[in-house]
Computed example of a mutant assay.
Amino acid sequence: MTVAVALLTGVPGLSAGQQAAAAGAPGAYAFDEGAPRVEGALSTADAVRLEAGRTYRSTLPASGPVHYRLELDGASNVYVAATAAPPDGGGAAVVDGVKVSVQDGDGRSCDVDTTTFGAAASPHPVAASAAREISPRRSLCKNAGTYYVIVERADPDGKGASPDAWELELTTVSEPRPAQAGATTAPDAWDSAPPEPVTGEARRRAGGAGFAEAAPLGEGVWRDDIRPGQTLFYKVPVGWGRQFNATAELGSSSSGGTGFVPAALDLDLYNPVRGHVADVGIGYDGRQRSGSLSPLPHVAYANRHAPRSQVAAMRFAGSYYLVAHLAEKVADDFGVGPVPLTLRVRVSGTPQDGPGYAGEPVPPDVFAAGEQDREAVADGRE
């Protein structure tokens, strides 16, 4: 602990949540160590190129968009995700977060996506993903050429938000077309009944501090601890034809504190290209509390044709990411110590063959079910 942090901690003017942030207890977002830094341009004319399959670091200013460039063929879908990592202890507005859009050379929108901090209004890493998708449902953005990625804050007015610049992690994924034409509509029926949560003895698994360090999980009950202001990352291999569900539980507090935080835990699910799928918020009063993600369809290529974004997001096999964030406000009522976190993960359904791509995705293993992750879960490696 530095002298500056020691002086901040325990200052009467700071709440317990602010003291925890000042002490740096939750830790910073863990960026991909091999990611080169690029600067977003204020104009498309100066935009630096992003290559498929690469991860980059950049910076998002407090106001105004930044631009990046893509050079695309006329056959592949390309997904660009921006993970925004606000500094610990800063301000946060419910409607703030990150917004990503892809546009063609004439400024026409191909896709746009926004992810916000949500009801917790607690700053934490959030990701949004936008695509150049070649689809019979889309009349634009089909041709080869230059496209632009625009990243900005989700709150255009900046009310109640941090005035600081945020760090960004940018990822790009290329998906080839199927070798054979398939269904052009989403499956019209799937088991949408809430599944029974998984039971049994919990196994310890420490969550990572970023997507690149996400801890592998399989079906089962998993136990961790999470501190106020901390965000933990986990990944679950989900193959074609499989159905995913997760329940999060906050254990009872041993601090002796009292109070109620209405949006204490935020659990988000992201797909293999970091597209937001679903989330659930859990209130906390010091007693055990739980919440489950809404039922999701089996993973299928044709889900992309669904009008509901939650269904459309279940379009890939690969690693799905569970991201758990405990609001800084929890420290005000229950102290800065960790709160027990239990994740009950279910992966059901009959495995199926994938679409049979006409080429290789970039990176090549992004839509694989994750054999290495399965092995890591099986032998207990952290």
Rank of each mutant, 00 (worst) to 15 (best):
W166M: 09
G281T: 07
A130F: 03
D104F: 08
T247E: 13
L50Y: 07
A202H: 05
L8S: 12
F233L: 05
Q310M: 10
G291N: 03
E360M: 11
T55Q: 06
D225S: 12
G359L: 11
F117W: 10
D106S: 13
E196L: 09
A165G: 08
D96A: 04
R344N: 08
V38M: 10
V112I: 10
R54T: 11
Q18W: 10
L322K: 00
Y321E: 02
A264P: 01
G349C: 11
H325S: 02
L322C: 01
Y68H: 14
P355F: 05
S162W: 02
A248Y: 00
A45R: 15
E219S: 15
Y56L: 04
L341A: 01
G90Y: 02
E360W: 08
A264K: 00
D279S: 15
E219I: 08
A131K: 12
S101C: 03
T116K: 02
A119E: 14
A193R: 15
D365Q: 14
V11C: 12
L250N: 04
P65N: 12
G275F: 01
A179Y: 05
P26I: 04
F316S: 07
P361Y: 09
Q18M: 13
V261Q: 02
P340H: 06
A331M: 06
T9K: 15
R54Q: 14
Y234P: 03
L8R: 13
G158M: 01
R203I: 05
A62K: 06
G229E: 00
